[in-house]
Every structure is written in structure tokens, then in C-alpha cells.
Design a protein around this nucleic acid. Structure first.
Length: 350
RNA sequence: GCGCCAAUUGACA
């Protein structure tokens, strides 16, 4: 068996699954039974050559016969199922693992929890997390972060609190990502005070704030129209040695644009450009949306052209703003021209 | 033990 398995592994590593299967059949005809190593090798080989159906079939076969099965039999398949967003199948196999007391590795769990949440299957993700606790396969901080993030995004405050409480009771530690996730969540939902409180807490625990932390807090202030405080926090960020990036400035520009202070937004924009900082379509979209909202279509179009001349592709959001602006000042014909331009770029109106 | 890669957090809609 060992010799056969070695040969099979060699062919699998070369991606030659046909030869690998030939050896496998040869093996059976000579009276040797494929063992779990044979299966695991072939499963991995099929996965690496994108033949997932075949890999899955082998795994099903392994499950149906009484063959020693280990994490290696599952890992590559589940990995690929996650990549292909086939979360139902992935979850089914994870449950098979748990039934057999096999611990999936932490990367895999993080991917599954994140994938389930992205598909709106939050309760499955929560159930899995608790099932892991029961089995004493304690989810690591990344897996928990993925769950917390998913629940925050779906606005499921009750569940977020439930998970946090469980983590605290069990003495699981929060890391920078946990704090940033929660801070962003509070700030986005208008509770910037809670965000600041958590920021303080993380500092006390020796976890330093980073660009994401500041960006979220600044966003929280902007959302409430506290632009002066937002600018002060930006200064504090710099003096703390944390470098604001295009996201941070984007939040401030957006804040000014939404608050009908586009000129101040434009000032920040100019500072970015003069400082040779990268600007992107998000930044341009904020400005274009701001001008369009005010009905200043001359300026909106000028900014849009500037964007194009810099080689930055307008997005459907850019065009939506322009269309909205044109209609607002009664120039439906101009709006139609914008739609024509979108068609030429094969951007679909949303 | 080392190295590389990947998985969880921030901006326009």
C-alpha cells in the first residue's frame, strides 16, 4: 500500500489525476485495498486540479464505508466549497467532522462562519459557534471576529451581545480586530460615544488604535455632523503617530459633502492631491454626489471629467449621482445622455 | 524552527 500510495501522491502532485487513478485501480486488482491515505491523497489531488465533484464523491464514499477518516480528508474540500460559496455543503461536512470528534482548523472555521454570515445564514453561524464551545473546540479570536462582524452588519444587536457575553465569561480575549469591528458598528449606527468608550478600553488593555480605529471614530462624528470634532480627531490621530489614509480622508470629505459644506470637502481633497496622496473613485463619488445634490451640475461634470482624465473609471454610483442631479434641476435630457454614456461603458443602471 | 501565501475589522450607493 505504501508504495502505491507514494506513486499516487506523485501523480497527484503533478496534477495527473488520470495516472493517479490508474495506479489506484492497479492497486485494487493486485489485491491491495485503498486505505485512508489513498483516499486523502486523491481528494487533495482532485481539489488541486479543480475537480471538486470527484473529490466530493470520494469523501462521500469514505463516509459510507468504515475507513479511518481525519481532518485531512475534509480540509481541502471544505476549503474549496467555501471559496465557491457553497456554504450548505461546507457546513454539512463540518458537521460530519464534529460528529466524529475531529476539529476543523481555525482558518477553515473562520472561512465557514464568515461565509455563512455573508449569505445571511447568521443563525447557522451562531449555532456552529456554540456547538464548537460545547465540543470544547474553542473558536479562536478570528473565528469569533468573523461571527461578530457578520452579526453587526446584519444589525443583530441581540446576538452580538450574546456572543460578547459568552466570550467574556469564558475569558476569551478581544484583539484589535474585535475592537475595531465593534467600534465601527457603534459609530455606523450613530452611537459614537460607545465607540470612544471601547477605544479607551482597548488602549487600557495595551492594544493600540490604528488607522481603522480612527477612521471609524471619525465616521461616527461625521455622521452626527460634528465636523469640527472630526477634524480635531484627525489631528490627534496624526500626533499619535497613526497615519490617516485614503479611507480616513474619504470619510471626512463625505462628511462635508453630506453636510452641505462641499467647499471644505474640496479643500481636503486638494490637500490630498497636493500631498501626492492616492485618490480613488470613492473620493470622487462623494464630491460628485455633493455637487449633484446641490444642483451644481457644472461642477459635478467638471469633477467627473477630472476623474476620467486621471484614468479613474466612473462607477454606476457616479452616474447615479449625475442622473439624479440633472433630473433635480429639470434637465431630463442631460440625464438621458448620461444613461447613454453608461451604456457605452456597459455599466448597468441600478 | 524558518520563509512565503491565505482567512476576521474602516469610506461613496
Amino acid at each position: 500500500e505504501v508504495v502505491y500510495n507514494t506513486l499516487i501522491d506523485g501523480y497527484c502532485k503533478q496534477g495527473d489525476m488520470k495516472k493517479a487513478l490508474e495506479i489506484r485501480n492497479d492497486m485494487s486488482s493486485k489485491g491491495f485495498n485503498p486505505n485512508s491515505v489513498t483516499f486523502n491523497t486523491l481528494i487533495k489531488g482532485f481539489c488541486n486540479t479543480n475537480k471538486f465533484e470527484q473529490a466530493e464523491k470520494l469523501l462521500e464514499e469514505m463516509l459510507s464505508i468504515s475507513l479511518t477518516i481525519n481532518a485531512g480528508s475534509f480540509t481541502s474540500i471544505i476549503h474549496w466549497l467555501c471559496k465557491l460559496s457553497k456554504m450548505d455543503s461546507a457546513l454539512r461536512f463540518v458537521n460530519e467532522m464534529l460528529l466524529r470528534d475531529i476539529k476543523p482548523n481555525d482558518n477553515l472555521l473562520t472561512m465557514i462562519v464568515g461565509g455563512l454570515c455573508k449569505q445571511g445564514k447568521h443563525s447557522e453561524a451562531v449555532n456552529l459557534w456554540f456547538k464548537l464551545l460545547e465540543k470544547r473546540f474553542f473558536p479562536n479570536v478570528m473565528t469569533s471576529n468573523a461571527l461578530i462582524h457578520g452579526l453587526c452588519k446584519s444589525g443583530n444587536a441581540g446576538e452580538v451581545i450574546k456572543i460578547l457575553k459568552e466570550m467574556l465569561e469564558r475569558g476569551f480575549h478581544f484583539d484589535r480586530v474585535t475592537y475595531n469591528t465593534l467600534i465601527s458598528w457603534h459609530c455606523k449606527e450613530g452611537r459614537f460615544e460607545e465607540g470612544f468608550q471601547l477605544s479607551e478600553e482597548m488602549g487600557k488593555k495595551g492594544i493600540s488604535q490604528d488607522t481603522l480605529t480612527y477612521t471609524s471614530l471619525i465616521k461616527g462624528l461625521c455622521k452626527k455632523g460634528k465636523m469640527d470634532e472630526a477634524l480635531m480627531l484627525l489631528e490627534k490621530c496624526k500626533t499619535e503617530g497613526v497615519t490617516p489614509d485614503v479611507y480616513t480622508y474619504g470619510v471626512i470629505i463625505e462628511g462635508f459633502c453630506k453636510g452641505d459644506q462641499i467647499e471644505k470637502g474640496k479643500d481636503i481633497f486638494n490637500k490630498m492631491v497636493n500631498g501626492k496622496m492616492e485618490v480613488n473613485s470613492f473620493i470622487y463619488n462623494s464630491l460628485i454626489r455633493g455637487y449633484s445634490r446641490m444642483g451644481d451640475m457644472k461642477e459635478a461634470i467638471r469633477v467627473c471629467n477630472e476623474m476620467k482624465s486621471k484614468g479613474i473609471q466612473p462607477t454606476s454610483e457616479t452616474y447615479s449621482s449625475l442622473i439624479h442631479g440633472h433630473c433635480k434641476i429639470g434637465c431630463v435630457e442631460d440625464a438621458k445622455l448620461v444613461i447613454d454614456e453608461m451604456r457605452e461603458l456597459s455599466l448597468s443602471p441600478n
